[in-house]
Design a protein around this nucleic acid. Structure first.
Lengths: 192, 192, 192, 192
DNA sequence: CATGAATGAGCCTTCATTCAT
DNA sequence: AATGAATGAAGGCTCATTCAT
C-alpha cells in the first residue's frame, strides 16, 4: 500500500510514535516540536512523517482502533447476538477510557489519515452488523440506530471522565454506565 | 450581594458578556484580548471585570445554570417522582446541547466564581433529592448514584455533539439518548 | 510653607505614607495603584498627593534624611573633629543599610520634591563642614573632597548589600567597610 | 566546549550580542523583544539563543569577566604581593566603571550561565589568593576578608557612578576611591 | 532524507496615568 | 477632594511551520 520506509526512516518513525504515545499517556499535549526534541530528532523529520499533530495522534490511536476493529469482526462469530453486541461496546468504551488517544479520534468529525477513516468505518459497520443481529434476534428495542452506537460510547467515556477518580475508577464507572444504558436498550430483562 | 456597579461600568460589563455570549454561540474560543477588541474596550477593562477566560465563561453560563437550578427547585414540588426526575434531567441535557457555555462549566472539576460553585451545588442537590424520591417511590433501580447524574448528562450531551447534525437535530438526539438511559434506570416498564 | 491639609486629607496622606513605608520595608516595588488598594483609597487620591512613585519614595525617606541632617548639625558642636566626622558618616551609612528608602534617594542624581533637595543639600554641607574641620585639625589627608562623602557612603551601603546576609549582618559589614575607608583617610594611626 | 553553531546561526548570535552590547552601553534596559527588533530578527530567534535577559547580559559581560580572570591568573606571577593585589583590584573596578554589563553581573547573587559562575569563581579565588599573599607578606592588615573583595569593588564602582561626571571622570574617581580604601587596608605607610 | 535555525503571528498580562462621576 | 473605572501601550512568551544547509 505505502512505499516501505528505509530502515533508518522506519526507526525514526517508531521513535516518534513511541514518544507521542508516552506524551499521550501522561495527558500532555502533542506538540511536534516537543516530540522532536524528546525523540532527539529534527523538527523537520517529524514533520516529514506527520504533517500535523492530528496525524500523529491518529497514528498513536491506530493500534487501539485496529484492536477494536478486530474484535468487531470476531464478535460477529459469536452465536449469542446480545453477548456479541455487549462485548463489542464494552471494548469500545474501555479503549476510550484506557487509551487517551482513542477518545478524541473516535469523537472527531473529520479524519486526517485514510487509515483512520477506514478503521472508523470498520467499527461503524461492525457495530451496525451486531446491532442488526440483535434486532433480528429480538433482544433489543429499535430505539437505537447503528449510527448512535459510537456516539453513545463516546458519551459514556466522557461521562466517566467527568465523574473523575483514578484511571481504574473510570473504567469501573464506564462499565456501570454502559450496563445501565444497555439495560435501557434491551427488550428482555438484564442479560447477566 | 455585590456592590452595584457604576452605570458606565455596568454597561461595559454587559457588552463584554454579550460579546462573549456571541463568541461562545459561534463555538469560538474565549480570548480576553479578542473580547476586548470586539467590545471596543481596552484590554484592561475586560481584565478588570473578568480575571480569566474561565470567569467570563462561567458568567456567560450563569443564566443557564440559574434556570436549571430554578427548575430543580420547582421539580421537587411535582408529586410524580419519576416525572420530576425525568423532567429535570431533560432540562439539564437540553441546556448543555442548546447553550455551549453550559457543558464545559458543568463538566469542569473546579470553578472560578463562587456563584458557579453555588449553582452547581444546587443542581447537584436537586438531582440528589429527586433521585432519592424516585428510589423511595420504587420507580428506579439503585444502580445510579446521585453523583452519577451530572456526569451522565454531560455524557449524553457529548454523545449528541459527536453524533452531529443541526442544533435542532442534536436536541432531538439528546432526548432520545436520555430516554434510553432512563429506560435502563427504571424499575417498571418504560414510562412513555 | 505648604497649605495645611484638611483633616481627612491629612489622614489619607498618613495612610498612604504608612502603606508605602511597609512596602519599602518588605522590599516591594512602590506602585501607586497597589498603594491605593492597600490603603483602601482610590488611585486618584494617591495621585493627588503624590504625582509619581518617586515623590512617594522621597516622602517615605524624608524622616530618615531629616534625622541625618539633624545629626549633621549637632555633630558640628562636637569638639573632636575626627569623632564628629566619623559619627556622621556612620549614621549616613547605617541609615542607608537600615532604611531601604534612603539609599535610592541618596544615590539619585535628580530629586522630585524640593524638600528632598533641601535635605540632601543639608547633608552635603554638613559633610563638607565636618570634613573641613577635620582637615583644619590635621587629622585627615586631603585626598577626599567633600563632594566625595555622600557617594562613598552610598558605595559602602551598596557593598554591604552585595555582600549579603541578614539585615543585621549588613549593618555590621557596612561598619567594617566604613572603618577601613576611614583608616585610609586618616593622617594619624587609627583613632579608636 | 559547546556544539559549534551553524554559520548563519553564529552570525545571528553575533548580531544579538552586538545589539545588546550597544544597548547596555547606552544604559538602556535589555528587552529581548527590543533586541530582536533592532537586530532585525524574529523574537523566537533571540529566545532560542538567550532564554532570558539575564543570560544575554551575562553573555555580553563575559569578555570583560574573562579579561579580569586572565589578569587575576597573571597577577599571581607578580613577585610584589601588594602591587599584584592593587593591580588586580584596580582592573576589577575599572571594568565595572567602563563596561556597564560587568557591574550588575558581578553584583548579582545568582547566575544564569554556568560560564558566568565559573568566571566569577575564578575572580573570587584570584582575589582570595592575592589577598592571602599580601597577608603573608605582612603588607596588609587582616581587617578585610577575601569575601569582601568583590563587594567592595562593586561599592567603589557604585560610588563612582553616584559621584557622576563623564565616563572618564568616573574612572578617575574610582581610582581615587580605590586608593583611599587600599590605604586603609595597608600595614605600611601609603605605597605611592 | 534529515536537520534544526529562523520566523512571527498571536496570546497573555501588567501598570502608569487619565478623567468622568 | 475623592473615587475607581477605563485605557492601551508595552513587554513577555509560545509554538506551528518553513526552508536553507
Amino acid at each position: 500500500m505505502t512505499t516501505p520506509l528505509r530502515k533508518d526512516a522506519a526507526r525514526n518513525w517508531d521513535r516518534i510514535v513511541a514518544v507521542a504515545r508516552a506524551l499521550v499517556d501522561q495527558g500532555a499535549p502533542l506538540q511536534l516540536n516537543d516530540v522532536a526534541r524528546r525523540a532527539d530528532l529534527g523538527v523537520g523529520t517529524v514533520y516529514r512523517h506527520f504533517a500535523t499533530p492530528e496525524a500523529l495522534l491518529e497514528t498513536v490511536a491506530t493500534p487501539g482502533l485496529e484492536a477494536l476493529a478486530a474484535h468487531g469482526e470476531q464478535a460477529l462469530g459469536d452465536t449469542d447476538a446480545w453477548r456479541a453486541l455487549e462485548g463489542f461496546l464494552l471494548r469500545v468504551v474501555e479503549a476510550q477510557v484506557t487509551d487517551a488517544s482513542v477518545a478524541p479520534v473516535a469523537a472527531a468529525a473529520t479524519d486526517t489519515l485514510p487509515r483512520t477513516t477506514e478503521l472508523k468505518a470498520s467499527l461503524w459497520s461492525a457495530g451496525s452488523a451486531l446491532l442488526d443481529r440483535a434486532l433480528t434476534a429480538g433482544v433489543i428495542r429499535p430505539d437505537v440506530a447503528s449510527v448512535d452506537l459510537v456516539p453513545l460510547m463516546c458519551g459514556i467515556a466522557h461521562a466517566a471522565a467527568v465523574r473523575g477518580g483514578t484511571p481504574a475508577d473510570r473504567v469501573e464507572t464506564a462499565r456501570r454506565y454502559l450496563a445501565t444504558l444497555l439495560a435501557g436498550m434491551q427488550t428482555t430483562p438484564p442479560h447477566s
